[in-house]
């Protein structure tokens, strides 16, 4: 029981960070990584939020790299 509680807590922490990341990603990150997302309307970018919540570590790295590559 104890182990599972810890795993659930880890999930909660991961998802909370993911939620904050997803908001930033919808507002700025998506367009930063993929130029085609720049012209996508907000409701389309909102549909990217669940994916950003789930995959924030991968996207975080991509965002950082895209930031370095940009002049």
């Amino acid at each position: 029981m104890h182990t599972m509680e810890t795993v659930l807590l880890a999930f909660a922490v991961y998802a909370t960070i993911g939620l904050m990341f997803a908001i930033a990603f919808v507002i700025r990150g998506a367009a930063h990584i993929d130029a085609a997302a720049q012209s996508a309307p907000l409701r389309v970018r909102l549909a990217f939020a669940p994916g950003a919540l789930a995959l924030w570590p991968v996207l975080g790295i991509k965002w950082a790299r895209a930031g370095k590559a940009a002049p």
């Binding site: 599972m4 998506a30 990584i33 993929d34 085609a36 997302a37 996508a40 549909a47 990217f48 669940p50 994916g51 919540l53 789930a54 995959l55 991968v58 996207l59 991509k62």
Partner: peptide, 29 residues
Amino acid sequence: FPFEVLGFAALLIFFVMAATSHDFWLAIL
């Protein structure tokens, strides 16, 4: 055996799949 845990794990995978089903994800991932 807590079978609910198995369903939860499967649901997490399905969530990631559904959330990344748009072509945007295909392009950036």
